[in-house]
Computed example of a mutant assay.
Amino acid sequence: MNLGKGSCPRRLVLLATVSLSTLLGVATFTSGKERKPSSSVASKPAKKKLLFSDDFQTLDTLTWRPEIEPKPNSTVYAKQGKLVLDTQGGVTVWLKQPLHGNLQIEYTRKIPVAGDPNDRLSDLNQFWMASEPTGDGTTLATRSGKLEEYDNLRLYYVGMGGNTNSTTRFRKYPGNGERTLLQEYSDAVHLLQPNKEYKIKTIVQNGTTSFWVDGKCFFTYKDPAPLPTGYFGIRSTKSRQEISNFRVYQLD
Rank of each mutant, 00 (worst) to 15 (best):
K238D: 00
S31M: 08
A78E: 13
Y157V: 03
C217F: 01
T30R: 08
E178A: 13
V113C: 09
S74H: 02
K201S: 11
H100W: 01
N118W: 02
R171N: 14
L20K: 04
E34I: 10
M129S: 01
M160C: 07
N125I: 03
V84Y: 00
G161T: 09
P174E: 15
R11A: 11
P72E: 07
G215F: 00
L95T: 06
P174V: 07
R143H: 15
Q57F: 09
V158G: 00
T229S: 14
T202M: 13
K79R: 03
R235C: 03
N152K: 15
I203V: 11
D60L: 00
R35H: 11
Q80L: 03
L251P: 01
S40A: 15
N206Y: 03
R35K: 12
N2E: 15
L24T: 06
R169P: 00
D151V: 05
S40R: 15
D60H: 12
R240T: 04
G233C: 04
K36R: 13
T92D: 00
I203G: 00
A225K: 13
C217Q: 08
F29W: 00
D187A: 15
Q104D: 10
P133E: 07
N163A: 07
V113T: 11
P37F: 01
F218Q: 05
N163M: 08
G89C: 01
T229A: 14
P133N: 01
L147W: 14
T58G: 10
L140P: 11
T138E: 07
P174L: 14
L20Y: 03
G135D: 09
K196G: 06
I111Y: 01
I200A: 05
T61F: 09
P174Q: 12
G159I: 10
D151H: 11
R11Q: 12
I111N: 04
T138H: 10
E132T: 07
G233M: 04
Y157A: 01
L147K: 12
D86K: 05
P112I: 02
G101E: 09
P98R: 09
D123H: 08
V84P: 02
K146D: 03
